[in-house]
């Protein structure tokens, strides 16, 4: 397992809080600003940053994050640019974990082996390929293991208990529990349902569990934090970035609100 992700979750445990995991799209609105946004988030207490790798067809995303992908693609941000971004970020930061989240076709454009060599070189901690269920994991799993890069796996409200056992056995880093049936930015979070499902999930794994989809403020974060080891927040940040204005301040304020809610 990536030592950084492991350390983060054990640290937040001793600090008696939950990990804050922020999602933004790499290159939205441009790659320089993404670096500034990452550093701004770090200042306000983010633990892990999920960097969306821009894709032309982000099938699991709601409108907010789709727009983020479109903005990033308009200025031509690629997977290679995103690796460079991490390299740059690592010049000043070795604590915050970075996970790439995206879609199979862009990850494969580099090939699994080259991807993992590059990931290792720049200091990437994990990958989450949305459209890569365990059945289709192929070479990524193999090369990730060789280099201690975590493969974060999704578990959904539709996943059966038998299936989640299998998924957990192949996951590393943390488990990403999708809190709603739907796409990112969905508004129908049912905290009671989430609690029941995550409690059951905990019987199958010792890995930390992060909860995401439909969490956008301190209230929604607080509503499910009791069962979680970490909370993932995405659409609201991508919306703030899309709005423009003083992006860094907006992102800082939101990160602060969330990290306080999780302490």
């Amino acid at each position: 397992m990536s030592s950084r992700i492991k350390e983060i979750f054990s640290r937040v445990k001793t600090e008696n809080r939950k990990a804050l995991i922020n999602y933004i799209v790499s290159g939205d609105p441009n790659i320089e600003t993404t670096l500034d946004i990452m550093n701004a988030m770090v200042e306000e207490g983010v633990d892990i940053i999920e960097l969306g790798v821009p894709f032309s067809d982000p099938m699991a995303e709601g409108v907010s994050i789709q727009k983020g992908h479109e903005r990033a693609l308009e200025n031509g941000t690629s997977l290679r640019d995103t690796f460079k971004l991490v390299e740059k970020f690592r010049e000043t930061n070795i604590e915050t974990a970075i996970v790439f989240m995206g879609y199979m076709n862009t990850f494969e454009s580099l090939g699994a082996q080259e991807f993992m060599i590059e990931a290792d070189k720049v200091g990437l901690d994990g990958i989450l390929i949305v459209d890569m269920p365990p059945e289709e994991s192929s070479d990524f799993t193999k090369y990730a293991e060789e280099r201690s890069i975590d493969i974060i796996r999704l578990i959904a409200p539709t996943t059966s208990s038998a299936r989640s056992k299998i998924i957990c056995s192949q996951a590393s880093g943390y488990i990403y529990y999708i809190s709603v049936k739907g796409i990112t930015g969905a508004g129908n979070l049912d905290a009671e349902d989430v609690k029941i499902n995550v409690k059951e999930l905990k019987q199958h794994t010792n890995l930390p569990i992060a909860i995401g989809f439909g969490i956008k403020d301190s209230a929604s974060a607080s509503s499910v934090k009791e069962v979680a080891d970490g909370i993932v927040v995405g659409s609201v940040f991508v919306d703030l970035i899309g709005e423009g204005g003083d992006i860094l301040k907006k992102v800082k304020d939101k990160t602060k609100e969330l990290s306080e809610a999780l302490s």
Binding site: D131, P133, E135, A156, T159, I178, G182
Partner: peptide, 18 residues
């Protein structure tokens, strides 16, 4: 596994697999 040689398969987010 829904494959025609190397093609096909089921590359979807977990929610849809079940």
């Amino acid at each position: 596994n829904g494959r025609f040689g190397i093609y096909g398969g089921r590359y979807v987010a977990e929610t849809l697999v079940p």
